[in-house]
Amino acid sequence: MNAPGSNRDEILAALRGRLHRQDGDGGAEAVATRIAKPARGPIPARGAGGHEARVALFVAMAEEVAARVVRVPSPEAVPEAVADYLKSENLPAEIRLAPDPGLTGLPWDSQPLMAVSEGPARPTDPVSLTGAFAGIAETGTLMLTSGAAGPTTLNFLPETHMAVLKASDITGCYEDAWDRLRVVQGAARDGGTLPRTVNLITGPSRTADIEQTIQLGAHGPRRLCILLVDDGEA
């Protein structure tokens, strides 16, 4: 086997040959421009409404793919809503929190019967609670980002995933959510980097590999519960 460098050169030389690439042919400029100024494609009109319409569309689309949406009036009401949901689903009162001050700082002592811990998911954790960077109304999708406050394992390992989403963080389309992330992280063109993992999550895990019959809970969570905090418009 050749040294890695020469494989790279071999492939790139083959591509350049097939494309008749030449210095000064404008190719490099076209590429630089496209990355510096990303161009949007056609945006579905369905997400173009105002705040109320966006929230309503998000809820409808999320429920369509079997996510549960629970409206809560304020962040402080989240612990009680979590307890109520777990009770209604007959699930253990035991929750693993993302180490996010916005979640760990909530009034969990109002729920003395609930076992609360924080950190990345362990294989035995039955329920996780995470934040969400954004919600995307177009398809009822959550956008979650990894980091110190966002262990990715919480989104996949427990049987039940609960996520807190502020209504003001719901965008109409994917592009608006990515633009928000570019602002927070710094756009790639300015040397910014995406978080290690960005998860777009639309409903709970599912498979149709047994005779094309949809079955929830293939490997990821069997249940996805979105706690939608009505904090008004952004």
């Binding site: 689309m61 369509e64 793919v65 180490p99 950190g119 990345p120 998911a121 177009e138 398809t139 009822g140 999708t141 990894s146 980091g147 110190a148 406050a149 966002g150 262990p151 990715t152 394992t153 980097t193 995406l194 978080p195 290690r196 993992t197 960005v198 998860n199 777009l200 999550i201 639309t202 409903g203 709970p204 895990s205 599912r206 149709a208 990821g220």
Partner: peptide, 24 residues
Amino acid sequence: ATGQECSTYTTFSTGPRRPGDADG
């Protein structure tokens, strides 16, 4: 592909675990 509006999981991965990351 499946006629879904959107697949359940679309995951963007960029490099390995970062300093301070809780997992990955």
